[in-house]
Amino acid sequence: MLAVRSLQLGYGAIVAVRGIDLDVGAGELVAVIGANGAGKTTSLRGIAGALPARTGSIVFDGEDITGLPVHQRVARGMSLVPEGRGIFARLTVAENLDMGAYLRRDAAGVRADLERSYALFPRLGERRRQLAGTLSGGEQQMLAIARALMGRPRLLLLDEPSMGLAPLVTRLIFDTIRSIAAERVSILLIEQNARAALELASRAYVLEGGRVTLAGPSADLLSSEAVRKAYLGE
């Protein structure tokens, strides 16, 4: 589904990602863990097209999308939920969800999915006419995820969905991610909460200093000495 090869990314003179290889299979949930500044968010932005690749290639569904602008990657079924609840604060909840379905032309299907979003997150239904900026942090994260799903993506890119949320809300968000994965949507999840991410994902990559230092099935990483020491606090 997604194959990233020797991808290098940076900002100005700074190289943040120094050539990573990464794969996500169809219907697979893959996690990327690592410390602050390891290049996790940068990698995701590069895959989504928000940041141009310096070198390397990104192949999505057999098509090389390395040079495509972000909106054309969305059209091909990729959707990024940015970190820190990227929502349109001055649009209503319903308008935010409509923006998620921006490229869809099937009005009936969009309406049905809108109702599905409200069923998935009843809080959003209650607040559909409210400006999104007035929602709580957890509700904004729900909105960002629900909005990404409105585009019926085949690959969902999640950037730190648990950041800054209360434990109870975090659990709700992770349960939701699990149920999205159960519907055969491929997911690439970036998390600082390494334990939660590894328990959710089938495979994972460890990023350090812009390079992949470890990769493998989550169960192996969970039991690996290095991961336990560095990321699980044991």
């Binding site: 929502i87 308008e95 923006m99 921006y102 490229l103 585009g151």
Partner: peptide, 16 residues
């Protein structure tokens, strides 16, 4: 309206 709030985010919605 979405673009005026955040062009980057609007792009992620598929807006050209």
């Amino acid at each position: 309206r979405a673009t005026s709030q955040s062009p980057a985010l609007a792009g992620l919605m598929g807006v050209d």
